[in-house]
Computed example of a mutant assay.
Amino acid sequence: MTYDPVGRLRMIPTDQEAPERVARLRQLGLGGQPDPEFDAFASELARITGAPYAMVNFIDEHRQFFAGLHTPSGGMTGSDAAAAASEPGRVMDRDHGYCPHVVVRRKALVLEDVCDYPRFAGNPVVDEIGIRSYLGAPLIDRTGMALGTICVVDVEPRPWGRPGLETIKSMAAELVDRIHRREDELA
């Protein structure tokens, strides 16, 4: 973590693997465009967890890209300016949200109420989108690279608990298996 001259701690940790991740994502053909299979996966993740938002998120040096996205409206936001004001679009800066922490930590993260954690309460998504709870897990592929995350968020605190943690981890493993099958089919 580095100090921000504005007078607060930088919100995201340094990501040493980002250049290698970008190369691996390109090799897999991921992280640059919406993917209907990942949208369906995000919708299933939202259904299973009961969360209004779910994402399949790939992260590079500068941004996060939601290749899979489920929102309360059911639409894939990003082009509609009114929706974009209250819902996440397909692209988000790296300093927004909690997925960059998950990728660097390489561990699932459970925030039942982000406001309980000073480190996370000041994140821009709290004010801009109203996010209050987060549950995410890394997508670690066969090379050992953390490609991105899957996550769910809510605008209300949520008692995710151990069941939520186990669900997000098993769903991440399932999606990694799908990514590997795609790679094998292309080879």
Rank of each mutant, 00 (worst) to 15 (best):
H101P: 06
V125M: 11
D116V: 06
V110G: 04
F120R: 01
V102E: 01
D116L: 15
G122D: 05
A121K: 04
D116C: 14
V110N: 05
H96L: 11
G122H: 06
Y98W: 12
G97H: 05
D116G: 07
A121N: 12
V104K: 05
F120D: 02
L111A: 09
L109C: 09
A108E: 13
V125P: 06
P124L: 08
P118N: 10
V102P: 01
G122S: 12
Y98I: 12
K107L: 12
C99Y: 01
V114Q: 01
C115I: 14
D116Y: 04
R119Y: 05
L109A: 09
E112H: 06
G97W: 01
L111F: 02
P100V: 10
L109G: 02
D116T: 15
R105M: 15
N123Q: 13
V125G: 06
H101F: 06
Y117R: 02
C99K: 01
V102Q: 06
E112S: 11
Y117M: 08
V110Y: 01
G97C: 07
C115M: 15
D116H: 15
R105P: 04
N123L: 04
F120T: 02
P118Q: 13
L109D: 07
K107Y: 06
R105K: 13
C99D: 07
C99N: 09
G97P: 11
L109E: 08
L111D: 02
R119H: 10
V103P: 00
V125E: 05
V104A: 07
H101D: 11
C99F: 04
H101K: 14
V110M: 07
L109T: 06
V102S: 03
D113N: 14
L111Q: 02
P124Q: 14
G122N: 10
C115E: 14
F120Q: 00
V103M: 05
C115L: 15
L109F: 03
A108P: 05
P100A: 04
H101Y: 08
P118S: 08
R105Q: 15
V110P: 03
A121W: 10
F120C: 03
R106Q: 15
G97V: 04
G97Q: 12
R119G: 08
C99R: 00
C115V: 06
P100Q: 09
V114E: 00
R106A: 13
N123G: 07
P118I: 10
C115P: 01
N123M: 09
V102W: 00
N123I: 01
C99H: 03
A108K: 01
P118G: 05
V110D: 10
V125L: 10
H101M: 10
L109K: 05
F120I: 06
Y117E: 14
V114A: 00
P124T: 12
R119Q: 14
K107W: 03
H101Q: 12
C99V: 08
C99E: 04
Y117V: 15
E112T: 13
D116A: 15
P118E: 03
V103C: 04
R106W: 07
V103Y: 00
F120A: 01
C99Q: 04
Y98E: 11
F120L: 05
A121T: 13
R106L: 11
V102C: 05
V102N: 01
V103H: 02
R119A: 10
H96A: 10
Y98Q: 07
Y117N: 12
P124C: 11
E112C: 09
A121P: 11
R119T: 11
V110R: 03
D113L: 13
L109M: 15
